[in-house]
Computed example of a mutant assay.
Amino acid sequence: MTYHEAITKLAETYAAVDAQRIEADEWYERQVAAATRAAREAAAAVEAAQETLTAASDLVERIGDQAEEVWRTTVRRLGAPAARYGGSPLPAPLQSGEEYNPHQMIDAASDLLDQSWRPGRMPQSALPWLVLLSATGAAVAFSIREAIFWVGRSYGGDLAVGLPVLALVVTLVAPFVGLWPAKVVADRRHVALDATTIAVVLAAGVATTVILALLT
């Protein structure tokens, strides 16, 4: 092999090596770019999944709070028959292909509760009992008032100054004592404590307090 042929062969070899090196560099850059793109897409997918999970958790919490509020309203309106279940019922299992809209179910439950709950007025037959309860409550409160006065007179000193103020407060509260049993009766009968019933109860309490004050 002549010198010229050897130089030509060497040049061809260098050219082939350079071409392979360029091809290898291009392949490496393509692989790095693909890996970077895949990592970026994976990070975006993870972030999207995290956002979806957070939104789903917030939705579950909101729906749970709304369901608990509907259940508390149910127990408050229906009393013991609803309270005996111990908590809101679990969602019914879905049928195959059935879609579930929690907001729609909550709204439907609230509408059904509102439609089924139409509190009536307190029956007239219950008013004498409410008058008796109010008068009894006012009498008990008035007795406490008299006991406070007696303690103040008996022990004197600071008690003689402070207890009459407490007795005055008890006197002012006495006519309103009957509202509590009236509310209990109204809840048990699932009726509203209307203005007429409140007026009758207060009138009985005021009359009892005034009569006892005049007699003492």
Rank of each mutant, 00 (worst) to 15 (best):
V206N: 00
A44K: 11
A186W: 04
A186S: 06
D187W: 03
A55M: 08
E51P: 02
R72Q: 08
V140I: 15
A204D: 00
V46L: 13
V184P: 04
P89Q: 06
L90M: 14
R118G: 04
L130F: 01
A160H: 03
Q20V: 05
Q95W: 15
L133H: 01
T209W: 02
S143F: 13
Q31D: 09
V70L: 15
L10C: 09
L53W: 09
L127M: 11
T74S: 11
E47R: 06
W180I: 14
L113W: 00
V32N: 05
A141E: 01
L112Y: 10
D194H: 01
V185L: 11
V170D: 04
V151S: 10
V151D: 10
R62E: 05
T73E: 08
V210M: 05
E146K: 11
L168A: 15
P102D: 01
T216N: 10
V177K: 00
A48V: 11
V60Y: 11
G178E: 00
L202Q: 01
W150Q: 11
A80M: 13
Y155Q: 13
A55E: 12
T2F: 04
A203Y: 05
V200E: 02
V185P: 00
V70Q: 05
L159F: 05
L168E: 15
P93A: 03
G86F: 00
Q31K: 09
A55I: 07
A80G: 07
A16T: 09
I106S: 10
L163N: 01
R40F: 02
A108Q: 10
A167D: 02
